[in-house]
Amino acid sequence: MKGMCRGEDEGMRGKYQPDTSKLLPQSSYLKPDNSYLIEKLKTMKIEVYAVLKEYFEKEFTLSKSFKDINDLRNFLIDSNPKASGVLNISRFAVDNEFVDNNYSLKENDNISIMPPSSGG
């Protein structure tokens, strides 16, 4: 839980902003025709909540394939190691339904990443 309780100033530094140029699937570049130019870019929309906003943009997209939630979480931890503590205890939802760590991610999934609740 350490690292979740951060001051405003410190937390605003080093937010992860995806470099989409590096995230395009390699296969897109290798297609023999130009279909990839008109193919709708397959992306995953991610929205984070509460303290996670101090590590990531509120909403961002990733154009990359992930096997499952574990895969995505590990990618985000690599992107911003300071967020590992809270990412490891956060719940993930796809299209507003909670999913477990083995959920197989599909292109165009809308992901919500939610730290432990603190309502009331």
């Binding site: 979740m4 309780c5 730290p115 603190s118």
Partner: peptide
């Protein structure tokens, strides 16, 4: 002037 996201549910611990 400080702020804190907190009071989190710590049951997972």
């Amino acid at each position: 002037g400080s702020k804190l996201w907190g009071g989190n549910c710590n049951c997972h611990e």
